[in-house]
Design a protein around this nucleic acid. Structure first.
Lengths: 206, 206
DNA sequence: GTCTATACTCTGATAGAC
DNA sequence: GTCTATCAGAGTATAGAC
């Protein structure tokens, strides 16, 4: 697994293992010793690579958000129509969230364990990602994809909410792949929010 | 606030205050001293009322689940048609979850901090509640309320998922009341899962 | 970069007086 | 039923040798 930011090889090992443990046991329930033992090093050695436990949490969150933002931005830029951009964004969002489940999980659950200053920096990054979606959904509405009465912020929240639900079931070994789940999801919410015109277009694309 | 199970007055105080703190700071981040100081007593005094910290968590979960089960069961028994029973169950589920938010929150987030044995007892109780819903939704499908292709377990999961989303925004001081939110939710998912016949019936009932 | 050793703090929990 | 006093253990983090 390659991490998208400027960290040393050893830092990257620590981030990946810590994310796994934070997900498995929770941030507070995971001790510095748990992490170091899983990496077959002493707890003191960890402090050479990170200033403290909180900085490991911060690194996990930054890696997770940067990875998601980069992947979704790239996916969007490859598509021409707004409909295809939304579909691709959903698929890649799901794919990244499911592939890097530990990061997605920590991002969702452990913001409160960051000090207020760091919390602010992560929230700002998350807001930028949310904005990307809101702009895309707005463009979608202007293009007549969504019914007039659909609240777009609510739609984004429900979309992310559904994705988070999926994270709690999904096993990488299972039969469903992110693309299939994204399609099933579009189908499920489809009749509720999409216009007849959009549904017809979707049938053609499949 | 009256608690529905057999606890002393002081135990009830502790349960309510602990639930508030567990929600605010998290179970592990809340110390026995935090709870006792909030109640203006010493940490040792707490141990007269509960054997240990875990038993407080268990009591919160039992109170929360019993309260939900009782309220929803009663609401269902008051309604005649399956459609009205489902609508009433949704409304009361929301109302209880929003009125006793601390309990709902702890129930959702802190199961992992219970020892395996206690976890089993809470999961069994939760399964009984889920079953109540599944039976009701099944009856609804047999009565022709839901489209044939709707997966009922998925519907329940998405319903609870949406409710959980609401819990994270809802402020009791706000303008929206549980009944209004339940109606808005029915409207939102309505066109996706309900049959035309059910929608028509719903319009009449409003 | 990693180790040993250790300082310091906070935690859950108990004993025993009142 | 609540208190004072206290303990054992675990937690984060650091100092300094290699």
């Amino acid at each position: 697994m390659e991490l998208p930011i400027d960290v040393t090889r050893r830092q990257s090992d620590i981030i990946i293992e810590a994310a796994r443990l934070f997900r498995e046991k929770g941030y507070l329930a995971t001790s510095i010793r748990d992490i170091s033992e899983a990496l077959e090093m002493t707890s003191a050695a960890l402090y050479y690579h990170f200033k403290n436990k909180e900085e490991i949490l911060l690194a996990i969150m930054n890696v997770g958000l940067d990875g998601l933002m980069t992947a979704v931005t790239q996916a969007i830029s490859r598509e021409k129509s707004i409909w295809e951009r939304i579909r691709a964004a959903l698929e890649v969002h799901l794919e990244i969230s499911l592939t890097y489940q530990d990061f997605a999980f920590v991002l969702l659950k452990d913001l409160r364990h960051l000090s207020p200053e760091w919390q602010g920096s992560i929230i700002a990054k998350r807001d930028a990602y949310d904005n990307l979606w809101d702009e895309m959904l707005l463009e979608g509405r202007e293009a007549g994809i969504f019914r007039e009465n659909v609240d777009l912020e609510l739609l984004r929240l429900m979309t992310f909410g559904a994705v988070n639900l999926v994270i709690s079931w999904y096993k990488p070994s299972g039969v469903y792949q992110p693309k299939e789940i994204a399609d099933a999801f579009l189908e499920f919410i489809g009749e509720g929010v999409l216009t007849d015109q959009a549904i017809a277009a979707y049938q053609i694309l499949k």
